[in-house]
C-alpha cells in the first residue's frame, strides 16, 4: 500500500489515480466531520465537496509535517466554519454569564444512544451552538481558539457551549423520558 506522502506527491503531479486513492482513504472520516457541522446531509455534502476541492488545491502547502489526516481535518472544519459564517446573517448578542451545570446521573442511558442519534441531536442545535460545541467538546479547541476563529468573545463561546449542553440534555430527556425518570 503506498504511503500517504507518495500519494500526495503523485497528486501534486496531477495524477488522477492518486487523487482518487487519496479520496478513498479519507472520504468517510472527513464526511463524518461535515455531518456534525451541517444542518442536513445536503449541506454536509456541499461542505465536504468544497472542502475536498480545497484539500487538492492546497496540497502543495502540506509540508509533510504532522499527520496528513489532521491537516485535512482542519481544512474540512475551516470550510464548514466559512460556510456557516456565510450563511449566518444575524450576529446574535449573547449574554456572557453562563449557567452552572447540573449533575446528570444517567450515563448508562447515554451509552445506549447510537452515533446517528447523537449526530441528530447535534444537528438540531442552532448553528452557533453547534459550532462551538463541535469545536470545544469534540475537536478539542479551547475557548480562546474558538473566540479567535469565530470572532466572538471567550464569554460568548462559554455561554454558547453551556446552552448547547442544556439543549442536548433536553433532547436526551425528550428521547428517553421514561428511562430518565426511572433513573432519577
Amino acid at each position: 500500500m503506498p504511503k500517504p506522502t507518495d500519494i500526495v506527491k503523485a497528486c501534486l503531479r496531477g495524477d488522477t489515480r492518486a487523487q482518487s486513492r487519496l479520496y478513498q482513504m479519507y472520504a468517510d472520516r472527513l464526511y463524518g466531520i461535515t455531518l456534525r457541522y451541517a444542518r442536513n446531509e445536503d449541506e454536509a455534502k456541499d461542505i465536504f465537496q468544497e472542502g475536498f476541492i480545497k484539500i487538492f488545491e492546497k496540497l502543495k502547502q502540506y509540508q509533510n509535517k504532522g499527520s496528513l489526516e489532521g491537516w485535512m481535518r482542519k481544512i474540512i472544519v475551516n470550510t464548514a466554519l466559512e460556510r456557516i459564517r456565510r450563511e449566518n446573517k444575524f450576529m446574535l448578542v449573547e449574554d456572557e454569564a453562563y449557567m452552572e451545570y447540573e449533575q446528570y446521573k444517567y450515563e448508562h442511558i447515554l451509552e445506549e444512544l447510537g452515533q446517528k442519534d447523537l449526530l441528530e441531536m447535534i444537528r438540531q442545535l442552532s448553528p452557533q451552538y453547534r459550532v462551538v460545541f463541535n469545536l470545544y467538546a469534540i475537536e478539542g479547541y479551547s475557548h480562546k481558539e474558538i473566540s479567535e476563529k469565530l470572532n466572538i468573545s471567550e464569554g460568548t463561546s462559554k455561554s454558547n457551549l453551556s446552552r448547547a449542553r442544556q439543549f442536548l440534555k433536553a433532547k436526551i430527556e425528550q428521547y428517553y423520558p421514561v428511562k430518565i425518570s426511572q433513573v432519577i
Partner: peptide, 14 residues
C-alpha cells in the same frame, strides 16, 4: 457529556 460525545463522534465515519 463532552467526553461522551467526543468518544462517540470524533472518529465517526460515514
Amino acid at each position: 457529556i463532552d467526553g461522551f460525545f467526543r468518544r462517540k463522534l470524533y472518529r465517526y465515519k460515514a
